[in-house]
Each structure stands twice: as structure tokens, then as C-alpha cells.
Write a protein that binds this DNA or RNA. Structure first.
Length: 613
DNA sequence: CCACCTTTGAAGAGG
DNA sequence: CCTCTTCAAAGGTGG
């Protein structure tokens, strides 16, 4: 299997093991099919791109009309259908689709039909089946190394996919990974989970679903976040997350997950009635823009003054306040329509114009949100799992647990998220070149810090926190945050020989970015089992430095708003880790915190000597 | 209705 | 350069 070029490319899961086909004959057959399909789609892609360039200016006039599938639409549809059908079959067979090449094709995702918590430790994907779909999308620098062997197309037309889409345990060269469907019980999803079914008419509204054979499409629940939320195993809990129904297919998440609003709180969402991009000068490669301008359904290329920006890229980061008003995305669901696969963007957009929110939207301009950092990505993925395990629902408590678990992750595991976050930032910066985090200052309501009196500074740190002590969020009876007992990584990755380690962590740093913080100094090396020559206490460029985080470190336990003192991120020996994570910070932690000796003493001597090397 | 809580990390502002 | 602040997600809670 071709090895992905580093160069910032996606190397995640490059060595992940994959589920084999039943037999080689089958595999070869599928590979052949896949190759053939790709070739065909390549042609289609080219024609689409050309066509789109020619027609891009006429989109406005078409905007009012219902989208008519073009020849390419149909062709693509056929191809996509093949993929989907195959995907489903594979899913049922428990095999996966393997293609010898393709680097960077977007992956359509359909939910994993079986695996409840499979994502343990791995981003995403938790429960997704990735379908390889060829479609020119973003030209992501991070995936620049992904070179289609057949790619004669210019770089800007190459089929690049934001690698952030890739599950960490999935190699990009594995276009389709499916899981067994042993838990798959086709059925009618709850109405509220059938975005494509018009509750009023009972009809499915999507063009695609009307054409695709039942069961050929999997779809992603809105309940699932971009990176995938492990679903709960229980059927009753399962349905909300996996509204799978062969008869109610249609919602296909865009390969760029964030492009499709999911869940009430989409990671990145599309404002009702459209999308106004605050940054007209959106950087988009040719393929992207052409797709946007032409391949987008007329409904996407909205005529509405506040609809999609001409660039048409509803980046998830763009959020309209109005959207949060509708947790169920009512403005999206019933009237949502999937467009021909030619839109492979698989964007779904309300066909109706949302009448009311329009004005509101004018007042409240959507803003581009910050890209998620590594921890946020981790939280996004793991929250559901923790919630399911703990029966806790308060985010504050969940976050505490997640924070502890975060620190319990091995370095490699964290590296995955850092890498993902890095790519997320890359993508974000590509989409919003002029964006600055400062733009969002004040988007939130004033922090209490600002509200409070300047002189009450010394007091507020405790007072505010005292209102809700940490322990309040840590019900003693809930041992769910015990990493040893519940954290997947602990169970799943006893010490994965990390091949993957080589790449994700260290190389993450690019010319434009500093080396990943990785909290190197905070990792209990004993767990990592991967003493690296460069892994030294000084290798951290500017990560969360214990000494620099907060002046009043010991007090920062109660420090509101500001950074956590990383009390628990201290180099606590693993043997003490559990205890550390189950108990509030103590003098022990502080001691460990202020002294790396605590770590070094607890570390194998070899570690120390190695670093000396 | 909305700020708060809570977590880590990134980025910006200011000294 | 260093320190501090803000925001990103999430959803229950409380004013």
C-alpha cells in the first residue's frame, strides 16, 4: 500500500489495521470496480468542472427553479449509487471497500450500523462508514501530499479532501470501511429523525432519496457531531443517534462534515435562509469554487440576499445566532432536501425560504467561529460517551471528566487530536484568510471578569467558584471518569506500538505553526511507552506551561474563566493517575506540579537517561 | 432569555 | 517575551 507522503499530509492511522475482505477475489473485484468507477467519475468531474465554470454566472436565474438533475447529476448519481449500494452490502458483510489508490477523495459517511463505542480512542468515526466519493473539494495543504497516482489534473482540481474527515484509525487509503451490521435493525426512524420526510405530507422530499434505492444510503444522524459521536448501544438510545432507515434515506453528510448542519448544535452551521459569508475573499480553489457556483443546487446558490455567499461555502464556523434558537433545526429538517449527488457536496438546504428568521438574521450577522482546538475536538467526540457512561448531563461535570481523561490519554492519542486541530485551523484559515479570533471578541457576553469590579480581583477567584465547587460536578458515586475503568484508550491502546506515533505528533509543526504543544511535559511517560529522543522537557515551545499558566497556581483551582492551572496535567505518575483524577487537586498535585522531579523520579530511569541522549 | 459553569488550547491584547 | 483574557463546545442550572 502506498505510503502517504508526509509533508503535512494525513498520516493518521496510516498503519491501522483493516478488516479484510472475505477473499482476495472479492477484493480484487471491488478494487477493479472502484478503479473503474473512479475513472468514470474523473471524467464526470472534469466535465462538471468545465460546465460549472461556464454556467456559474447563470445560477441566479436558476435559483428559483427546482433543481433539475443534469446529465452529470445522473451519471454521478449512478456512480454514487453504486458506491452506496456497495457500501451497504459491505456493511452487511462486514467487509470493507478497498481501493489501491486515491488519495484524497472525499469520503461520504454513513453511520456505522453496529458499533456502539467503537471509536474508542479514535477520532470519530466512531461510527461511520466512509464511502469514498470522488469529488473535487478543498485543496487542503495538509493533504497536499496525497497524490492521486493517476492524477493528471492540476493540483487545484485534484481530489483533495480535508483530512480532518478521516477517522484516525482509518487510513485515507481505505476509502470505505464498514462495520458489521449485527445491530442493524432497519426500521422507521422517529419522525423527528427523518429530516427528509416531510411531516406534513409524509413524503420524502429529497431528490436523491426518491431515486436511490431504499437502503442504499446510510445517513448521518443530526445527533452526531462532525467527528462522530459514539452512539449508545441500547436500541432505545440508539435511534436518536442513528436514525437509520432504508426507507428514509437521503441525508448524506457532506464529506466536509462541517458543511452539513448536524444536530441542534452543529459544529458549523448554516444560517437559516442562507449564508452570508463575512469574508467574500474566501480562498477557494478552482474546483471548489466551480462546484459551489454551479454544482450547488440552485437552492444553494441562493438568490436570497442573505443566503449563501457567492463562494457558497457554508463553513461550519459560520454561525448565525438564529440557528441556536432552533435546536431541532426545524427550519432545516422538514424542508430539507438532498440534492443530486452531483452536488456531492451533499449539501442540504431548505427549499423553503425561512420567512421569519430573515430579519433576525439581518440584525445578527453570523460570525465565523474559532476552529476547535485539540481538546475541543476531543470533547466533541467523547462527550456523548461520557454522558452515556455517567448519566451525567451537566456539561460542566462532563467537561471535568473529559479534562481528566484528556490528560490520561497517551501522547499518541492526544497527538491525533492535535493534528486534527492543526488541520482544522489550516482549513479554517484557508476558508477565512482574513479571519481573526479577535473578530469574535465580544460575541459572547461579557465575561464575569469584565463585569466584576477591578478591585475585587483577589476575591472573585474564590467567590465565584465557591458558588459551585468542583466537587459538585463530580458526583462521588460516578466513577465514570476513571480512566482505567472506562476510558477506551486505556483499554484499547495498551501501548500501541505506535507506528503512527512517528508522524502525528512531531511533524505536526509546520513552518507556519509551532510544534504541537502536546503538553509534553505533562504526559505521564510511563504510559506512553514511547520515549522519544526529542521528547524532552524543553521540547515544548510554548505549551501550557505550568509555571506560566497562572501566577497563583494553587489558587487557580478556583480561578474562574481563565486557564486552568493544569493541576491535573502535571506529570503525575501513572500509578497515581487514577487517584489524581478522582480526587480534587491536593498538595500532592501541587508538589508534582511544581517539580518535575516528581515525574522524573517516578519515571523509569531509562527515560531520564534517554532524554539525556 | 441568557449568563454561568467547566475543561484545554489557540490567539490576541497589553505590559 | 510574558501574562492575561477571550473564545471555541456543551447542556443543565439559576437568575
Amino acid at each position: 500500500m502506498p505510503q502517504l507522503n508526509g509533508g503535512g499530509g494525513d498520516d493518521l492511522g496510516a498503519n491501522d489495521e483493516m478488516i479484510p475482505f472475505k477473499d482476495e477475489g472479492e477484493q480484487e473485484e471491488k478494487i477493479s470496480e472502484n478503479v473503474s468507477a473512479e475513472r468514470d467519475l474523473d471524467d464526470v468531474k472534469s466535465s462538471l468542472v468545465n460546465e460549472s465554470e461556464n454556467n456559474s454566472s447563470s445560477s441566479d436565474s436558476e435559483a428559483e427553479r427546482r433543481p433539475q438533475p443534469t446529465r452529470q447529476d445522473l451519471e454521478n448519481y449512478e456512480k454514487a449509487r453504486e458506491y452506496f449500494s456497495e457500501a451497504l452490502r459491505r456493511q452487511q458483510d462486514g467487509g470493507f471497500f478497498k481501493s489501491p489508490h486515491y488519495p484524497g477523495y472525499p469520503f461520504l459517511m454513513i453511520p456505522d450500523l453496529s458499533n456502539p463505542y467503537l471509536s474508542s480512542g479514535s477520532l470519530s468515526t466512531g461510527a461511520r462508514t466512509y464511502l469514498q466519493m470522488k469529488w473535487p473539494l478543498l485543496d487542503v495543504p495538509g493533504s497536499a501530499g496525497l497524490k492521486d497516482s493517476r492524477a493528471s489534473t492540476p493540483g487545484h482540481l485534484s481530489n483533495k479532501v480535508p483530512v480532518v474527515q478521516h477517522p484516525h484509525h482509518m487510513h485515507p487509503l481505505t476509502p470505505l470501511i464498514t462495520y458489521s451490521n449485527e445491530h442493524f435493525s432497519p426500521g422507521t426512524p422517529p419522525p423527528h429523525l427523518s429530516p427528509e420526510i416531510d411531516p406534513k405530507t409524509g413524503e420524502t422530499g429529497g431528490w436523491m432519496e426518491q431515486h436511490l434505492p431504499a437502503g442504499s444510503l446510510g445517513w448521518l444522524s443530526k445527533e452526531r457531531s462532525f467527528y462522530g459521536i459514539p452512539r449508545t448501544p441500547h436500541p432505545s438510545e440508539l435511534s436518536p443517534y442513528y436514525p437509520l432507515s432504508p426507507g428514509a434515506v437521503g441525508q448524506i453528510p457532506h464529506p466536509l462534515g462541517w458543511l452539513v448542519p448536524q444536530q441542534g448544535q452543529p459544529m458549523y452551521s448554516i444560517p437559516p435562509g442562507g449564508f452570508r459569508h463575512p469574508y467574500p475573499a474566501l480562498a477557494m480553489n478552482a474546483s471548489m469554487s466551480s462546484l459551489v457556483s454551479s454544482r450547488f443546487s440552485p437552492h444553494m446558490v441562493s438568490h436570497h440576499p442573505h443566503s449563501l455567499h457567492q463562494t457558497g461555502i457554508p463553513h461550519p464556523a459560520i454561525v448565525s445566532p438564529a440557528i441556536k434558537q432552533e435546536p431541532n433545526q426545524g427550519h432545516l429538517s422538514p424542508s430539507m432536501h438532498s440534492f443530486p449527488l452531483s452536488d456531492l457536496g451533499l449539501f442540504t438546504v431548505s427549499r423553503r425560504k425561512s420567512p421569519a428568521p430573515v430579519k433576525k438574521e439581518e440584525e445578527k450577522k453570523p460570525h465565523v467561529k474559532k476552529p476547535l482546538n485539540a481538546f475541543m475536538l476531543y470533547m466533541k467526540e467523547m462527550r456523548a460517551k461520557v454522558v452515556a457512561e455517567c448519566t451525567l448531563k451537566e456539561s460542566a461535570a462532563i467537561n471535568q471528566i473529559l479534562g481528566r481523561r484528556w490528560h490520561s490519554l497517551t501522547r499518541e492519542e492526544q497527538a491525533k487530536y492535535y493534528e486534527l486541530a492543526r488541520k482544522e485551523r489550516q482549513l479554517h484559515s484557508q476558508l477565512y484568510p482574513g479571519w481573526s479570533a479577535r473578530d469574535n471578541y465580544g460575541k459572547r457576553k461579557k465575561r464575569k471578569r469584565e463585569k466584576q469590579q477591578p478591585d475585587g480581583e483577589s476575591e472573585d477567584q474564590f467567590s465565584s467558584r465557591n458558588k459551585k465547587p468542583c466537587t459538585q460536578y463530580m458526583p462521588p458515586d460516578k466513577m465514570c471518569d476513571s480512566p482505567a475503568s472506562s476510558h477506551g484508550s486505556m483499554l484499547d491502546s495498551p501501548a500501541t506500538p505506535s507506528v503512527a506515533l512517528a508522524s502525528p505528533a512531531a511533524p505536526a509543526a509546520t513552518h507556519s505553526e509551532q510544534a504541537q504543544p502536546l503538553s509534553l511535559t505533562t504526559k505521564p511517560e510511563g504510559r506512553a511507552h514511547h520515549p522519544h529522543p526529542h521528547f524532552s522537557l524543553s521540547s515544548k515551545p510554548r505549551g501550557p506551561s505550568p509555571s506560566s499558566a497562572q501566577p497563583g497556581l494553587s489558587l487557580s483551582i478556583g480561578s474562574p474563566g481563565s486557564q486552568s492551572p493544569h493541576i491535573l496535567s502535571r506529570p503525575i505518575p501513572f500509578s497515581s493517575l487514577q487517584h489524581a483524577m478522582l480526587t480534587p487537586p491536593t498538595s500532592f498535585h501541587q508538589a508534582a506540579l511544581h517539580s518535575h522531579h516528581a515525574l522524573l523520579q517516578s519515571q523509569p530511569l531509562s527515560l531520564v537517561t534517554k532524554s539525556a541522549d
